[in-house]
Design a protein around this nucleic acid. Structure first.
Lengths: 109, 109
DNA sequence: TGCTATGCATAGTTTATCTATGTATATTTA
DNA sequence: TAAATATACATAGATAAACTATGCATAGCA
């Protein structure tokens, strides 16, 4: 699949996953997306972590660092603000997809 | 609608319109997109013309300037190369949309 | 004559994602 | 046990897409 189509939708995917799963860490998010799309959508670290930092800086996400055995993990979850905005974010994306679908399916024959 | 969702899909929309309509000029493309989406998708000149130049530079589109009365218009249409690639471009976009739809519709309840 | 719509274009900015790289620990396997 | 692979987070710099803002010019209408 073309690589640059993802633009603009990564944030939406992240907040949706966190809405459904409560809290996740970065690696888990990237693996989950890959698994759910059969490897068709691959999020690179260089995209994912800046996106998570961005969403945290905006106050959409909040974090908690924990140690699992000797490993440390940074868990992300929706903040109160984020929880309120998710519905709007998902609605925008849904509407956008419908518009694109509509444009690409019209036949003028 | 959020502004940055369009990322990556503008080129696809353009080639689809040209595939269906044969040839169009810039203003016509932007108005058509706006009309077909009830004003939900608005392409600014600063996005549209660079995109058209880009696609022309890539050899996907070719142009022909014409005078309509005293106005001059630059008509864009798919090149031979572009015609061959459209199917692939549309397929990629369709696949991408399905993947995103899939991710956003999954329920883990 | 002034206003609105049409029509193309570019300069400069912002933003998202990418590639590439770094650090470090855990687990598996030969 | 050594090597390979997987896990885990992070940033610097490049690239590209779309944006804002602006410019020029003509057409048509009130």
């Amino acid at each position: 699949m073309s690589s640059n189509l993802l633009s603009g939708s990564l944030d939406t995917i992240i907040v949706k996953l966190l809405q459904d799963n409560g809290e996740m860490y970065g690696y888990e998010i990237s693996k989950t997306i890959s698994r759910l799309t059969n490897g068709k959508v691959l999020i690179k670290e260089g995209s994912l972590y800046p996106a998570l930092h961005r969403l945290e800086a905006k106050g959409i996400l909040e974090t908690e660092s924990r140690s699992i055995g000797n490993r440390h993990r940074k868990y992300y979850k929706l903040s109160e603000k984020g929880s309120k905005e998710v519905k709007h974010i998902l609605h925008d994306m849904q509407e956008f997809i419908e518009n694109i679908q509509n444009l690409l399916n019209i036949q003028w024959t």
